[in-house]
Simulated scan of single mutants.
Amino acid sequence: MSQPSIHLHTLTSTDGSATYTSPTSSHTITSGISYPLEVQFRSKELPEDTYIEVILIPHNAVSQVKERHVEEVVRRVLKSIVRGEETPRCMLQCTLQVTDAEVDESLPGGVKGPGQGGSYLEMLAGAVNCAVAGCLDGGVQMRSVAGAVVVAVMKDGRVRVWPTLKERKLARSLHVFAFNTDGHCLLMESEGSFEVEEWERAGEAARRVVTGSGTDADVDVDMNEDTQSLLDVMRRAVEARVEKDGSWKDD
């Protein structure tokens, strides 16, 4: 099974940043984290919490309904893991830029990205992972680390993790699950037609890929002893960043 690629501190003018590339190279997203900031509008100040703002910029268009929904979902995931009480009346701003997307050869001329009529779930999983990685690089105080994965349930009932563009088009349903380091589910988003049993199998497969454990024996996930879980990939990215700079965060 191919694995995602995460590199920290890819931008120099932000408090934290990361670049995430999906395992199927379907998209590359760069995040920029600014934290803590003064809240621009007093009406958004939270007296005992941190206001979180997420901005998603697509690679070739202006943000529309799909991007607005992804922004809100990512914001809710960050809200569940960030220790907002440590910086009350402040703001955490997360900007996500889609820098590259796969080309759909089945469309005339080849079109990058699924467009507003396509599924947003592949981009959602990448946006969650890139935002969390950026927060790690920026030294944002968090209760735990989280990762998200997209899963496809094919027409024959097989469960495919990190499906390709062709597999996503042929799938009966698509799902995104996010789990934290304790294995608790933070996010569930689904599209298509599926049975409860298929949804549970997809969730167990996603848990295995994100955390490295917890999959039932009847769920087929292509992971061997050398395959890293998504949270391990993030951990290795942090270790590489610390080893390179000799410190957690620049002074």
Rank of each mutant, 00 (worst) to 15 (best):
M1E: 06
M1D: 06
S2K: 15
S5P: 05
L8C: 06
T12N: 15
T12G: 08
S13R: 15
D15A: 09
G16A: 02
S17F: 07
T24H: 13
S25G: 04
I29N: 04
S31Q: 11
I33Y: 05
S34L: 12
Q40A: 07
Q40E: 01
E45T: 06
T50F: 10
T50V: 05
Y51A: 05
V54D: 00
V54M: 09
I57L: 10
P58W: 06
H59Q: 13
H59A: 12
S63A: 12
E67Q: 06
V70M: 08
E72H: 03
E72D: 10
V74P: 00
R75F: 02
E85R: 14
E86W: 07
E86N: 13
T87F: 03
T87C: 11
Q93M: 10
T95H: 09
E102L: 10
V103M: 15
D104G: 02
P108A: 08
K112N: 11
G113N: 13
Y120V: 04
L121S: 13
E122G: 11
L124S: 06
A131V: 03
D137W: 13
G147W: 11
V150I: 10
V153S: 01
R158C: 01
R158A: 06
V159T: 05
W162A: 08
W162V: 04
L165N: 11
E167Y: 05
A171T: 01
H175Y: 01
V176H: 02
F177S: 04
H184Q: 13
M188I: 04
M188P: 10
F194E: 03
E198P: 06
R201C: 07
G203M: 05
G203Y: 01
A205T: 02
V209W: 11
T211S: 04
G212M: 00
G212T: 02
S213Q: 12
T215V: 05
D226K: 15
S229D: 07
D232M: 12
V233P: 05
M234F: 09
A237H: 08
E243C: 09
E243T: 06
K244V: 03
G246L: 10
